[in-house]
Amino acid sequence: MNQAKIQRIIESGVDFNIGDILGKAWEMFKSRALFHIGFMVLIGAIQASFTLYLLDYSSLYSIFLAPALFSGFYLVANRQSQKVYIDFQNYFDGFKYWLNLVTTNLFSAIVIVLGIICFVLPGVYLLVGYMFCLLFVIFGGFDFWTSMELSRKLVHTNWLKFFLFGLALLALNIAGFLCMIIGLFVTVPMTYLAVYILFEELTIDAIDEEPKDPVIYV
């Protein structure tokens, strides 16, 4: 992924249709529903294990396991988009980027919390702004600070639209929770698929002609 091309995209500004993104996420989810639900069940089981038996270590799960696990949805979404063969083990490919994902997730969370402490609004701005930071780590190969800044700058070009997109995803997951919680096994994967689809559509012109990583938008 070419950083100069990303900068040009940022300078030109971005726009998108929220309904279209959610519709594409639903279609992507349906095409591999059993895989997505199965992996979400696995994540739920891991989270439940920490809550029930390892509560004192639950922060370790959030810091060291969750970023790589949930990034599995991004990586499988990429393979779906490129019509590449998918195996269930591909959901664990996030651990190939483990250190950078953990670092980026931790630092972005710290900055967001500091922003919330500073009159709340800066935290809300950054919470939306860092929507794509993990994706820039995985598909761009950037370090944590570059990924955070590229994400923030990209979102800043149309922050209100991204905020509304985030609200739509929140409403989707609230609906999933209200469906006897089981609905979250559908809505959480859809959330990650939707974020990936939006990221791909916005940054597709920044892809190098000969990417070094074969997973990146072949």
Rank of each mutant, 00 (worst) to 15 (best):
T187L: 04
M1H: 07
Q80P: 10
I6A: 04
R152T: 01
K5W: 09
L55N: 13
M1Q: 03
Q3R: 15
L154E: 00
V128H: 02
Y85C: 11
Y91I: 03
F107I: 14
L178R: 11
A25V: 06
C179E: 08
I9E: 05
K83D: 15
L164F: 15
N105R: 07
T103V: 12
F92I: 07
L202E: 08
T191E: 11
S12I: 10
Y196S: 00
H36G: 00
L127P: 01
K5E: 11
F92M: 07
I10V: 08
P214N: 09
Y97T: 03
I204D: 09
G129T: 01
L42S: 12
V137T: 00
F165Y: 11
I117W: 09
T157L: 04
F199A: 06
V120T: 11
F142Y: 12
A48N: 09
F39K: 04
F177N: 03
A109Y: 02
V41T: 06
G38L: 04
K96H: 08
I207M: 05
F16T: 08
N78M: 12
V111I: 15
F199D: 00
T146F: 08
I37M: 04
I182E: 06
L150W: 06
T103S: 15
I86Q: 08
F199L: 12
N105S: 15
T203L: 08
L193A: 08
I197L: 04
F95P: 03
K24Y: 07
I9R: 10
L65V: 06
D15P: 05
L154W: 04
F199Q: 06
A4G: 08
L54T: 07
G176M: 10
F73E: 05
L114K: 09
I197A: 03
I6C: 10
